Computed example of a mutant assay.
Amino acid sequence: MKLYSFPFSPNCQKVIAVAHEVGTPLQLVPVDLFKGESRTPGMLSKNPNGKVPILEDGDFVLWESTAMIAYIAAKAGRTDLLPATPRERAEVDRWTAWQGAHFGPAVRKVAYERIVKKLVGRGAPDEAVVKAGTEEFAMFAGVLDQSLGGKEYLCGRLTIADFDLTPYAALTAGCGLDFGPYPKAKAWLQRMTSRESVKKTLDAAREAA
């Protein structure tokens, strides 16, 4: 499989981490978002949204990172990571939908203001946006903390939902968001970032910086 990716993108990182977890080799093709490389005619022919990641498996081209991690897990036969029963699958789908609609956007809002703007020379952070994103993060981190309860993983056992959320959760420290008040969520994040598949992915992103 070939993955067009940007090393600092949490959506790319989740795909790489799942591939590492299941032992699926990926040929990584770097795409520099800051230089607009995802919006060239060739890239737009693969993903008309002008974004990465993009996964190619032979003549099959797939965009949307959550679809990719499900595809990689399914193709590897990992029903532990991608449950087949309706109830278990609904649990996974709930968390991936929640990440995409709530947690991820809150973290991205702060990360853009505090990290991306500096990298691309777009001025100082908008503190009103940072405040709004920080408040949203606090609300959703509380949801995560409460929902984990006594569980080690989001759905009780390790699934693609954990990998879907982890790169955004790992980004929080770099943009000044604190998991300290949420001990169960913090322990979950430490558990995930200690996995070799995730550690290898995040280490590679740091080395690319």
Rank of each mutant, 00 (worst) to 15 (best):
S5K: 04
S5T: 06
S9W: 08
P10W: 05
C12T: 15
V15I: 15
I16S: 02
V18I: 15
E21Q: 15
V22A: 06
V22Q: 01
G23V: 12
P25W: 13
V29N: 02
G36A: 11
P41S: 07
L44H: 10
S45N: 12
K51R: 15
K51L: 13
I54K: 10
D57T: 12
G58F: 00
V61G: 11
I69V: 11
I69G: 00
A73S: 13
A73C: 11
K75L: 08
A76R: 07
G77E: 05
R78K: 05
P83A: 12
A84K: 14
A84M: 11
R89V: 10
A90T: 11
V92S: 03
R94D: 01
R94T: 07
R94I: 02
T96K: 03
A97C: 13
A97Q: 14
Q99K: 07
Q99H: 08
P105Y: 11
A106I: 08
K109W: 00
Y112W: 15
E113A: 04
R114Y: 00
K117S: 07
K118F: 05
R122D: 08
A124N: 11
V129L: 10
G133S: 06
E135H: 09
A141F: 00
V143Y: 11
D145V: 14
L148T: 05
L148E: 00
G149S: 07
G149P: 07
G150V: 06
K151P: 05
G156C: 09
F163T: 09
F163W: 10
L165M: 15
L165Y: 02
P167N: 02
L171E: 04
L171T: 15
L171Q: 02
A173Q: 14
A173V: 14
A173F: 06
G174T: 06
Y182L: 02
A185E: 02
K186F: 05
A187Q: 04
M192L: 15
R195C: 03
R195L: 14
S197K: 14
K200E: 10
T201D: 03
A205V: 07
A209I: 10
